[in-house]
Nucleic acid binder design. Structure first.
Length: 197
DNA sequence: AGAGTAATAT
DNA sequence: CATATTACTC
């Protein structure tokens, strides 16, 4: 069984803003492989107008920093802070300062071009996070990495910190793993109980 | 201090 | 129910 059929957020509405038509097209294609519902524009003004008309029309916004008609960070603030929508920033340059500026202005994430398909896979978690105060969503994919890590270490050596390191996943904490590990052990116990009957 | 885990809270 | 947080131990 592959892992391509568990993604729930089919049709999640994304507004993508990038002044470069080629990049925009590429981004749209990537997003559509996950069956997101994508709206594109190459103007910041237009994006803002669309959002102001009804911000509930979108679940997530992706903004390229370099849009000629307005400051990308200004747009980030307007959308992220005032409209309270999750915003992903995007740029071609690997300038750490820009990345930090993006994050400090409220971006959920900061992608660097070229964007890889893999990086878009977990976009929906940003949306979930808005609706669900609980931070970590143990998607099938994430759980898989967890199980792989536990198996890689011997089961009796699988403690939160080691599992976390072995998983090599950003944005989750030792506590998150500990909590999941607790649940996983209960699950294993249940399984072995049933097996021994 | 920092980590692991059982218990408890949300 | 799943995940987070607490409380206790070492």
């Amino acid at each position: 069984m592959d892992d391509s059929n568990y993604l729930f957020p089919i049709g999640m509405r994304i507004l993508a803003v990038d002044h470069d038509p080629t990049c925009l097209q590429v981004l749209e294609n990537l997003l559509q492989t996950y069956q997101y519902h994508v709206t594109t524009t190459n103007e910041g003004i237009t994006a803002l107008a669309m959002l102001q008309e009804n911000k509930d029309n979108f679940d997530l916004v992706i903004i390229d920093v370099h849009i000629p008609d307005m400051d990308g960070f200004k747009l980030l603030e307007l959308v992220g802070v005032e409209m309270n929508l999750p915003v992903i920033m995007l740029s071609a340059c690997h300038d750490t300062k820009l990345v930090m500026k993006g994050i400090s202005h409220g971006a959920c994430d900061y992608l660097l071009k070229p964007v890889r398909l893999e990086e878009l896979k977990n976009l929906w978690q940003h949306v979930i996070r808005r609706k669900n105060p609980r931070g970590v969503v143990w998607s099938v994919e994430l759980h898989r990495k967890f199980v792989a890590a536990v198996n890689h270490l011997a089961i009796d050596k699988a403690v939160p910190k080691k599992v976390l390191n072995t998983m090599n996943v950003e944005n989750i904490t030792r506590e998150d793993v500990a909590s999941h590990l607790q649940k996983y052990r209960l699950y294993l116990k249940r399984i072995s109980c049933i097996a021994n009957l």
